[in-house]
């Protein structure tokens, strides 16, 4: 059985029950994958790699999008 995995997403701690692909994590969080960009441990994750990127212990994830600005 998998042990829980602690990660940080946008500065907030999260616990995953098992290793999870980034694409599954984003979808389960209710996000539209076409409208966000993701960084893992300060490295960009290309959209094409969401399915093959598996979240691991201690990962620092940033999920961003465009908002209004000047």
């Amino acid at each position: 059985m998998d042990s829980p995995i602690s990660i940080t997403v946008n500065g907030e701690p999260r616990v995953l029950d098992a290793p999870l692909a980034l694409s599954e994590f984003l979808t389960s969080a209710g996000l539209d994958l076409r409208k966000v960009a993701v960084e893992r441990n300060e490295e960009i994750v290309p959209r094409s790699a969401y399915g093959t990127t598996v979240l691991g212990p201690g990962d620092q994830i940033e999920v961003v999008h465009f908002i209004g600005g000047g």
């Binding site: 946008n10 500065g11 209710g30 409208k35 999920v63 961003v64 600005g69």
Partner: peptide, 18 residues
Amino acid sequence: TVAVRRVNLSDPGAPMLQ
């Protein structure tokens, strides 16, 4: 011009600029 900011994960369905 647009800014780049963290997505609010507690409200993922919120309308987006795009």
